[in-house]
């Protein structure tokens, strides 16, 4: 499977033949988004016993060009939930504005202090994405939503541009699905295992995942955002750096470029 955002929602090349980009002309009738332009790569997240840890790097790519290197792809909602965005950055910014508005409306609507929790937020966003796909005008994103549910248990769920939703003790979008998920699943293979993982352990695992992704995902960056959500609120650090990298494995890799094996 091709896990780059460019391939999301596309007819599969191996099934329908090579992609024909000839329709991409500058003039003509109004068009809906047919493909993402500036994109963010993986978002990774896993639950631990009192909350959820999430990370995403700070890169926005323009195709293979590392275009913007300081784009924050995790945002908070109502100081109780976090959302990580993979895929198109302009659609992310649209959702960001939309969520800000939603948050303000919610806060004004209720004196008693009802707020949307992570589950409510995820349901809302997945409906939004599903309705947009049903209009053939998708928001080209894959989201992870994390926080606590109504019983104050850790909540983590995903929603993508087709409106597909799922929840799991650990989740990752894009390349993270291939590279980070297997690492995280070693620690949280099922819901029961979450209770045995501490905050520090979870952060450690997530940092390790970000490192693996930086090694192998060519559209990634060593500067990233890390968010931890617990009942005490959200801790969002937006300028983390990958530490203790080791590229020792690199010179053992043969068969690329002008190299001969």
């Amino acid at each position: 499977m091709d896990h780059r955002p460019q391939a999301w929602g596309r007819p599969r090349d191996d099934v329908y033949g090579a992609y024909d980009a000839s329709y991409l002309q500058a003039n003509g009738p109004n068009q809906h988004t047919q493909s993402p332009i500036v994109t963010g790569t993986s978002v990774v997240a896993m639950k631990f016993k009192d909350g959820v840890v999430m990370a995403a790097d700070n890169l926005a790519s323009y195709g293979s060009l590392a275009r913007f290197t300081d784009v924050k792809r995790i945002r908070t909602f109502a100081d109780t939930s976090i959302i990580g965005f993979g895929g198109d950055v302009s659609d992310m910014q649209y959702l960001d504005r939309h969520l800000t508005e939603l948050g303000i409306d919610e806060a004004y609507q209720s004196e008693a202090g009802h707020t949307l929790n992570a589950r409510n937020l995820h349901k809302y966003l997945s409906n939004l994405l599903y309705n947009r796909r049903s209009k053939f005008d998708p928001l080209w994103n894959h989201l992870l939503v994390a926080g606590l549910d109504e019983e104050s248990r850790p909540f983590l769920a995903a929603a993508d541009l087709l409106g597909t939703t799922f929840t799991s003790p650990s989740l990752a979008t894009g390349f993270g699905g291939m590279l980070a998920q297997p690492i995280m699943r070693r620690y949280v293979p099922d819901e029961a295992a979450v209770a045995g993982v501490s905050r520090d352990q979870a952060v450690e695992v997530i940092r390790e995942c970000m490192k693996v992704l930086f090694y192998r995902d060519a559209r990634s960056l060593d500067s990233y955002s890390l968010a931890i959500v617990t009942k005490d609120g959200v801790e969002l650090r937006e300028n983390e750096k990958l530490e203790q990298q080791s590229w020792a494995f690199a010179d053992r890799i043969k068969g690329y470029g002008t190299q001969t094996v």
Binding site: A112, L116, R119, K123, Y124, N127
Partner: peptide, 12 residues
């Protein structure tokens, strides 16, 4: 319930 998966707050 369909849009937010929650019980409607009474006040609202």
């Amino acid at each position: 319930r369909l849009t937010y998966d929650r019980a409607m707050p009474l006040e609202l």
